[in-house]
Write a protein that binds this DNA or RNA. Structure first.
Length: 418
RNA sequence: GGAGAGGUGGCCGAGAGGCUGAAGGCGCUGGUUUGCUAAACCAGUAUACGGCCCAAAGCUGUAUCGAGGGUUCGAAUCCCUCCCUCUCCGCCA
């Protein structure tokens, strides 16, 4: 969430920067200026009255009889007035909060301005497209080898689910371990987080209140996490951190309702209601956020490079930027079967936007005031999509799949899927 | 799920309607003392939101004793609801 004082003091600039996101990004801001003024007036008058009240209350202790009764009557009136104003103040603050919670983050000045994903900028490419003759999609490869079963998954659960079988199930978990090893070597501490979280956590990272329809909610009121970003960022909610920076990697399943994506990627395991991911999360000093983002991208690229998977780094434009993000790079891996680059990681800095929502701070130095941290996160990597990439990039004319060398030690030396 | 106990500052722990941002201790920071270390002594030790101020510093007001509501002129203290923790029993990977 944005800082109220900053927004009010720089309303024009804020609107201008939000407009670059397109659509209705600035709508929620409309009533802010007036509400902020009312809030200030209410605070001033209630606090003055409260001070008066406090002083008079002191006298109550010593007064007796009629005098006390009189003062009590006067204080009763004062007390009622303060309560009334307090109630109004609360309303105003709730309105402000609601408004701010629905305002997305300001794009960083280095983010390319654009109107759709077509305006995203390719920053660099790594590797080369493999020579695959008449490439097939992962669904066909997986089903032919008996490694993927969508039909039974549809029976058991519904659309957008899959059974992995045999060596593919093994590959999935091997990749998890491989990604965690890669992250640990780069200084990230492994976490296994809760997969169900409360509403406060969802608000902290920005999924709520605006994107409730994208989430699964349990009857007990828990939300299933759409990414480990949620529990891991909220790990330090309402804290003042004494060690900085902090780097975590977390394995978790991710659950997404995929509302509004009907007809998109309906085939295969590209877009599922449930998938596995290793997430990288960093807590940084604000001034380090941008350089940390570059490191984060490198950290996410590392396992892709070890696997020898051709990919590119894309800077998202203002229109494609996520709600809470200040700046984002996507990693897109080459999929021969689709003849396209597809997102396999998304690395973002959120500046202090999430930290303000979740109240995560650090103390710059002994005796100094706490400051909001910068939060960052990125996939390192999406496991299912890596499986897709391995199937499609490693496919052979005979239908088998050659595994990247880097993963073989995690597969007991297995060299190919047959 | 059943029965009970409890949630107070960085930590431990008093407090039972007004003088309590909160005794005392520990820790931490600064200082004095000291051959060094230790000890002792003195002082300081929160956060948020307002105001004064160009700003910072500083000063000042208000709020904060798990959360929210209520009673009262006045609530850490009384009442209600909720959350969390612990113990015992049951169930369970």
């Amino acid at each position: 969430m944005l800082d109220l004082r900053f927004v009010v003091a720089n309303l024009g600039e804020v609107k201008k920067r939000l407009a670059a996101r397109g659509g209705h990004a600035t709508d929620a801001l409309a009533p802010i200026e007036q509400l902020a003024a009312e809030r200030r007036a209410l605070i001033q008058s209630t606090e003055t009255q409260r001070a008066e009240q406090k002083k008079a209350s002191e006298q109550m202790r010593t007064l007796k009889g009629d005098e006390q009764a009189q003062l009590r009557a006067r204080l009763k009136t004062l007390s009622d007035e303060v309560k009334e104003k307090d109630a109004r103040l609360k309303e105003v603050e709730v309105s402000i909060e609601q408004a701010l919670l629905n305002v997305p983050n300001l794009p960083h000045s280095s983010v390319p301005v654009g109107t759709s994903e077509k305006d995203n900028k390719v920053v660099r490419e790594w590797g080369q497209k493999p020579a695959v003759s008449s490439p097939k999609e992962h669904t066909e490869i997986g089903e032919k080898l008996g490694l993927l079963d969508f039909e039974r998954a549809a029976k058991v659960s519904g659309a957008r689910f899959a059974f992995y079988r045999g060596a593919l199930a093994r590959l999935e978990l091997a990749l998890v371990q491989f990604f965690l090893d890669s992250a640990r070597e780069r200084g990230y501490l492994e976490l296994i987080p809760p997969y169900l979280v409360n509403a406060d956590s969802m608000r902290g990272t920005g999924q709520l209140p605006k994107f409730e329809e994208d989430l699964f909610k349990t009857t007990a009121g828990f939300y299933l996490i759409p990414t480990a970003e949620v529990p891991v960022t909220n790990y330090h909610r309402d804290e003042i951190l004494s060690t900085m920076p902090l780097k975590y990697c977390a394995f978790s399943p991710c659950f997404r309702s995929e509302a509004g994506s009907y007809g998109k990627d309906t085939k295969g395991i590209i877009r599922q209601h449930q998938f596995h991911k290793v997430e990288l999360v960093r807590f940084e000093e604000p001034d380090d956020a941008l350089s940390a983002l570059e490191q984060l991208v490198a950290d996410a690229q590392a396992p892709l490079q070890k696997l020898g998977l051709h990919h590119r780094v894309v800077a998202l434009c203002t229109a494609d930027l996520g709600f809470s993000a200040e700046k984002t790079y996507d990693l897109e891996v080459w999929l021969p079967g689709q003849n396209a680059f597809r997102e396999i990681s998304s690395c973002s800095t959120f500046g202090d936007y999430q930290a303000r929502r979740a109240s995560i701070r650090f103390r710059p130095a002994q005796g100094e005031k706490p400051r909001l941290v910068a939060t960052l996160n990125g996939s390192g990597l999406a496991v299912g999509r890596t499986v897709v990439a391995i199937l499609e990039n490693g496919q052979q004319p005979d239908g088998s799949v050659v595994l990247p060398e880097a993963i073989r030690p995690y597969m007991g030396g297995m060299e190919r899927l047959t």
